[in-house]
Design a protein around this nucleic acid. Structure first.
Lengths: 229, 229
DNA sequence: ACCTGAACACCGTTCAAGT
DNA sequence: ACCTGAACACCGTTCAAGT
């Protein structure tokens, strides 16, 4: 495809990302990577230890796009909102790759930076260290899940195929027994595809931040209003 | 391994599940499945359309273990707590398989049953249908993420290897610069492994249910206490 | 109806060899 | 230092054939 030119890890990770975005993770292959650069598959072992190493680099590349807002002296929940939004902005363009982040958050620099900020904010909010660790992990992983589960996206196909898949899902859900699944049938369109992706993600962020606020209010702070049990 | 006896889909899914639990999804292979039953790989095509079909069946089998509590007239949030716990109880024994559920929740009966119950409860809580759809999706996927991210589990190895991995993670996190990652270093042990899995999952459920309560309070109900903005 | 045998196109990975 | 060629063990899948 491109001139054999100079081959390095950054370039290769770039084409791996393009492959994953266009055709899914299944298309990320030593052989296709090599072929795309007019080179033999074994040449890849000059740049990566093994396949796993490529996937690690792919996850790190996505997380490297996270632009954390500068820490300020605003309320912890607004700052948490900012961190969460920064992660989502980085993940959303690469839904096929997002899943890789699940197991690699704590093994690359940008993931650690995000964990650090999240832990900081949770401890500012009053969470004890162990609760902060568990919660930070869940928060970050929930956002990954939010991107993976984004309604109306097919595993790794082009826009047309994705559209077909969405239509098929709508039809399948609408065709269910309305006696047995009344709510699913009523919500078929909303479950199969978002009317607004922006609103979907706003709701997702809202749910997570509200969860942290609620846990704090009921567990780690006595002098504030607490929702009913 | 076992006598050629009678081979059917249920038996094969059972051995696929055992393989996945023991060695990870990578071990679930047409050829290993066949070999385990002393049969040729092509015999699998009598029982499954293709490999994807096996993974679908695997996800459905896990979800089939969900025991939804009977609907009652208790408060919606307590009932939601019950549904969430039921899903977690089914997923937790099969962390290697949990990820398959992400894309298959709405394409099998037990997944639909859970979506139906969740939508029902959210609408009881006052969520408009579209918000309920987005939120139900996120709730269920967050729980999958909770299991996948369970601290201290390696992708698909035995207990000993998992222990080694946990120790290595602890060491790696503890060895980070305490100037740059003070909170990560301080929380290294808690991030690498749970002191109590039960507490980890309780916190996870709590965070999700609190999130729903909070969103309801600020958006879909005016006469209750609402946390500060 | 259920299983086999041979074949195909594709994987990741190794090793010794080239320049 | 960087890439090649040949080989190996493993994939999913097809097709025609057996009983």
């Amino acid at each position: 495809m491109s001139a054999p030119g100079r081959l390095n890890q950054d370039i290769l990770v770039g084409t791996a990302m393009a492959l994953a975005d266009a055709e899914g993770l299944g298309a990320v292959t030593l052989r296709r990577l090599a072929q795309h650069h007019g080179v033999t598959p074994m040449a890849m072992y000059r740049h990566f230890r093994d396949k796993e190493d490529i996937l690690d680099a792919l996850a790190e590349r996505v997380l490297a796009d996270v632009v954390l807002p500068e820490p300020d002296h605003g309320p912890w929940d607004e700052q948490l909102h900012g961190v969460i939004t920064a992660l989502l902005d980085a993940l959303r363009p690469h839904p096929n790759i997002a899943g890789l982040v699940h197991t690699r958050m704590l093994s690359c620099e940008p993931g650690l930076a995000m964990a650090e900020r999240t832990l900081d904010l949770l401890e500012q909010a009053g969470f004890p260290v162990e609760a902060a660790a568990d919660s930070a992990s869940q928060i970050l992983h929930s956002l990954v899940a939010l991107v993976i589960a984004e309604p109306g996206r097919a595993p790794g196909a082009d826009a047309e195929a994705r559209d077909d898949a969405t239509r098929a899902t709508k039809a399948a859900l609408s065709a269910l027994s309305p006696r047995r699944y009344p709510h699913v049938v009523a919500a078929a369109d909303a479950l199969a595809a978002c009317s607004s992706l922006e609103r979907y993600y706003e709701r997702g962020v809202d749910l997570v931040v509200s969860g942290v606020r609620g846990v704090r209010a009921t567990r780690y702070e006595c002098e504030e209003v607490s929702p009913r049990v």
